[in-house]
Design a protein around this nucleic acid. Structure first.
Lengths: 107, 107
DNA sequence: CAATATATAGAACTCTGTTCTACATTTCAA
DNA sequence: TTGAAATGTAGAACAGAGTTCTATATATTG
């Protein structure tokens, strides 16, 4: 179904650096650079407790270890998974990164 | 000053995957795996407003764009930089990742 | 069996992060 | 030059995330 080829990690960083270089040398203007910046972020979406648990188990770590990776408490992870609290902001971003790139991406 | 050589990104992920494989095949026990997990995380430290601003300017983006990367509001970034609010938890983790690996690492 | 690791439970509390409005400055295109 | 857009500051009110504490239950392991 996906028409767009998924490139390996590193590509994104390279493209980004190139865009920044173009901006700094005046080839592209600030607005273009800004739109580029905002358009190539990994999409952040809401997570259900089930999804968070599945994600953690996919990475084969305990709640405690998972919590250490995200720099939050184990209790928070437990509450997320049970739907008692819902992660937001930076927590959501980290979960999205783990979902897409794995735990090692934020080690 | 640093005695330990800093390896390029990718190495960490590889080591991690290897450790997990060893664990899953029963070569190392769960406790060892856990200690390994907790010992190889990027250290998370507090940031002053100055440091956050310097970090953002190093990445050459506006507060708005920086905020988009972290999935927080531009106001939060502004308040961090002025010392009015102090990032914690997942926000701190993201800042540490940016500090060490650059903005592209969390794109 | 005893000790440890893991996960749940709930309650009280702190304070981040959000939201809103307003305003000053700078940048850039018309 | 003029006006629109981008950027950053400011403060206040608010919701709720994240912390902390204690207690309990289960499963695993030595």
């Amino acid at each position: 179904m996906p028409r767009t080829k998924i490139y390996k990690s590193g590509i994104k960083a390279a493209i980004h650096q190139t865009a920044r270089d173009l901006y700094e040398s005046g080839v592209i203007d600030r607005q273009t650079m800004r739109r580029f910046d905002e358009s190539c972020l990994t999409p952040v979406h809401a997570f259900t407790g089930e999804e968070i648990r599945a994600l953690r188990e996919r990475e084969a770590v305990s709640q405690t270890v998972f919590a250490h990776y995200l720099n939050v408490t184990k209790d928070s992870v437990s509450q997320w998974e049970r739907g008692q609290k819902k992660p937001a902001g930076a927590s959501l971003k980290l979960l999205s990164l783990v979902e897409r790139n794995g735990l090692a991406a934020i080690a």
